[in-house]
Design a protein around this nucleic acid. Sequence first.
DNA 1: CTGAAAGCGCTAACAA
DNA 2: TTGTTAGCGCTTTCAG
Lengths: 342, 342
Amino acid sequence: MRQVTIYDIAKEAEVSISTVSRVINDTAPVKGSTRAKIEELIQKYNFQPNAMARGLLKNETGIIGVIVPDLTNPFFPEVLAGVEHEAMQSGHTFLLSNTIGDYAKESEYLSIMREKRVDGIIFMGGRINLKHCEEHLAQELVQFANVIPTVLVNGGLRGTDLIRVAADESAGTALAVQHLIELGHTGIGFIGGEVHMTTTSIKLRAFRKAMKDGGLKVREEWMLPDSFSIDSGKRQMHHLLAMKERPTAVFCVNDYTAIGAIKAATEAGLSIPDDMSVVGFDDIPLAHHFIPELTTVSQQANELGKTAVNVLKAMMNKEKVKKLTTLEPQLIVRQSARSPRK
Amino acid sequence: MRQVTIYDIAKEAEVSISTVSRVINDTAPVKGSTRAKIEELIQKYNFQPNAMARGLLKNETGIIGVIVPDLTNPFFPEVLAGVEHEAMQSGHTFLLSNTIGDYAKESEYLSIMREKRVDGIIFMGGRINLKHCEEHLAQELVQFANVIPTVLVNGGLRGTDLIRVAADESAGTALAVQHLIELGHTGIGFIGGEVHMTTTSIKLRAFRKAMKDGGLKVREEWMLPDSFSIDSGKRQMHHLLAMKERPTAVFCVNDYTAIGAIKAATEAGLSIPDDMSVVGFDDIPLAHHFIPELTTVSQQANELGKTAVNVLKAMMNKEKVKKLTTLEPQLIVRQSARSPRK
DNA sequence: CTGAAAGCGCTAACAA
DNA sequence: TTGTTAGCGCTTTCAG
């Protein structure tokens, strides 16, 4: 089914294609009667100009590429919602790619996005979360960013000056740990995350600092990174429960691991928060509805998405933008943490 | 930053652009030495052909449009993951739109997708879930589908013969209710959903039928539709708890309402499933990790996404496809439902 | 094996 | 106010 083109409209209206183009884009005055006739025809055939043809000429697509590591982790849809809201304002749509942390897939998508000539991309997860990113992966992204406006969300590439938007995870961690300390906890554990990823090492460092600032000692055997899944939270809580001495509270790198930890503790007969306090990170929508409701740290995922788009738009307009835009996390106090039993 | 074109390559290689095109697409034999030179240049400049130019010519974009109602409901990311997996196989990418159930937004996105000349779309939620869809909304979609291959997921438009892929929600509901009946429940309530939406009316009807088949009477005051949110689940459970006579089990239209219902009951001092059984629908990832773990019905969201793409691809290849492809739901027995107390 | 040329659908000078 | 024309970057005959 061939779609109708500007030629079809022009022919039937007995004008040139330029005139049709003019009424479509309202780019120059057109006589009322011809305009009316053309508009009627556009209506009649439900004509939509071909974005590829236009894009080819104007060298833009109206498409923003978004690369996320894991759509099934509710944090990302939340960011996406923010991205979409903001993108829509300016008539941008977005091309989505789920990389499941596979670097090859990231490369592939990067390549596709270049072919498609997206107007800009927002990159999350994968290589930009690595403490030590392989040189060729880093270079690939740098080269990409040389050609297409790029913003990295919650990550970065050391030694490069790619534009970044990030929540201050260090401050967020401090908030959580301080809360636990104020509640009276003295033995606090750390669960989840992967040590080779910056999002974890940042939290690890902030955790140690907050403990020290609070006059507390960190017990190395209670430092239990693993991964970001619910199961890893469970696993490490089991681990903890098997010890003769346990912390009275744990900080988890995200809400998933916190949920896992609570699950494992509950199954083992503990009551959260009476027998142990747990705080999470991210404030996913379910945190509010879990039993018990999760005390956690909000990264303002939605805001993060909006901000990323706005920075990206500024770049697309060739405006000057800050290398790093930081969002302040907030502590969300709910039910999963309270003062320890005497 | 102008990107390099096929002309740049041709010039430097001292050949015509046709030859370059040939090596890119491997569409005709090219002398080894020239091919080598060209490939080297492509490498050197990191040349990527402009997809718009190619698309304009071949009249295809390699893009699949996906319209979803609510990204923050975990059911949809799950479907998307399936969509993506399958789309990738054939080199397709996807444009995503979140409509938050806003019909105007649906229209807008439909229009954008036509402009962008996507190769096909997958439509979920919104108008195709309405029991009575306004004529102009229906017509808009029908016209769209006339021009661009379209598959509707878990919905439809009565009176039209648009291609559909859907989980058998009726069978799924029966599975859940039968399970409850086998467990020994005789008083069963129904929570959540909106009566003007087919996904709800289908479940409502199947619920009534299953009750009847099981020799049970449905109590109208226990039929409590509302919406699909966690809060609506809470609200209706409160409602139920305030009655002098209550059911011993409730069927919820989705896992969100089930979670809400459990939450409200727990807060009111009941213990689930000891004091009341609850079954959900969808089997979102968290169903497995909630406390208690949710007994629910899986719609095979991931499979739904894959199937939709495969049907769509068949349509794009002008193959004949079935009007309706059905997926069988499965009962997932976990902890939130058990036999009632004597 | 390779080049010339037409054309995909549209916009934007430049004339008229 | 309108038409003519030259591309945007690429693929694909059709001739060599």
